[in-house]
């Protein structure tokens, strides 16, 4: 299972990658939306986790690109902050499958990932 994590905060990026790696996923990490979009073109991922606010290309646009331009259907989880509920709705409209609000429990993230992957395999 290959997962792409796109997050501009390096400490968080490391932490999430480590955690999911322990859960047995193969992790690729991207520091910003631009790098992520290039990776998505060249490789296939089973799931994408993306932050909301990022330099170069933000979370929305990344989702938009994945769905509209690259026409890929893998599940996408959006990371957002408290107080940005409106943007969550927009993200879901743009094609995200799920979202998780920071601060979050790492275990909850694992469970959501599992569910989405299983759902997608059916």
């Amino acid at each position: 299972m290959k997962i792409l994590i796109c997050e501009d905060d390096e400490i968080m990026l490391k932490a999430i990658s480590f955690k999911l790696n322990r859960d047995g996923y193969e992790i690729t990490s991207a520091k910003n939306g631009k790098i992520a979009s290039e990776m998505i073109i060249s490789q296939d991922f089973d799931l994408v986790i993306t932050d909301h606010l990022m330099p170069y290309i933000n979370g929305f646009e990344l989702i938009n690109m994945i769905r509209q331009e690259f026409k890929k259907t893998m599940p996408i989880i959006m990371l957002s902050r408290i107080g940005q509920e409106e943007s969550v709705v927009e993200a879901l409209k743009a094609g995200a499958d799920d979202y998780i609000t920071k601060p979050f429990s790492p275990n909850e993230l694992s469970i959501r990932i599992q569910k989405l992957i299983i759902k997608n395999q059916k």
Partner: peptide
């Protein structure tokens, strides 16, 4: 325009 759209603001 794209850069403006991704400015940090709610």
């Amino acid at each position: 325009t794209r850069a403006l759209l991704s400015l940090y603001y709610n």
